[in-house]
């Protein structure tokens, strides 16, 4: 349990109490009502993997999962998260520290360069594949439309499109493997 007061250091600033789960761990906090979720994650919980690229909800670099769905942490106030479950890029790797299929695919396909937009892309693509495993069969055009909520200035998206497809295939193959009944 993490519990503490995260208030603006200016004393007359009121705070509200919130209780949430971040990357599987319960967190209790007392926060300024104007504190952005992105700042709460980054500067108060030290989860600096979530990046802030525009602070107006367009670039998607700050994407996290709130209750299992991709959301912009720069457009969300921390106080809105009372009772919520939040997942960030730091939680994507496996318990043994291995890269997730989406992370591995981004590496294989050169889906990142400077790495700044990458956590947001990873969270968006992970949410996409959680929701729709059939992306593996989608056309390139469809994949491009499905990932068009995140901006990248480095890659020209080619590697990201390829990575999304590879990750979808890996996840589907793993699922099929798991579904095969084990013989005698």
């Amino acid at each position: 349990m993490t519990s503490s007061t995260y208030r603006s250091p200016v004393n007359d600033d009121p705070t509200l109490d919130i209780s949430l789960v971040v990357n599987g761990r319960p967190v209790e906090a007392s926060v300024s009502p104007r504190l952005l979720l992105s700042d709460f994650l980054r500067h108060h919980l030290g989860l600096t993997g979530t990046h802030v690229g525009c602070e107006h909800g367009v670039c998607g670099a700050c994407t996290v999962h709130i209750d299992g769905r991709a959301a912009r942490s720069c457009l969300t106030l921390a106080v809105q998260l009372d009772g919520a479950t939040v997942r960030t890029v730091e939680d994507l790797e496996g318990p043994d520290g291995s890269l997730s299929p989406v992370q591995e695919a981004f590496r294989d396909c050169h889906g990142l360069q400077c790495g700044f937009c990458t956590p947001g892309f990873l969270m968006s693509v992970t949410a996409l594949l959680d929701e729709d495993p059939d992306v593996a069969d989608a056309s390139d055009t469809e994949i491009r439309e499905r990932i068009a909520g995140n901006l990248c200035r480095c890659t020209g998206y080619q590697g990201i499109v390829a990575a999304t497809r590879q990750a979808a295939e890996t996840i589907r193959d793993a699922k099929e493997q798991a579904d095969v009944p084990t013989r005698g």
Binding site: T48, H51, V52, T88, L92, F106, G115, T118, P119
Partner: peptide, 15 residues
Amino acid sequence: EDPRLLRGQGRYVDD
């Protein structure tokens, strides 16, 4: 450089 960046362990100035 990728494993670090993919895990959210990049170190940009604000980090």
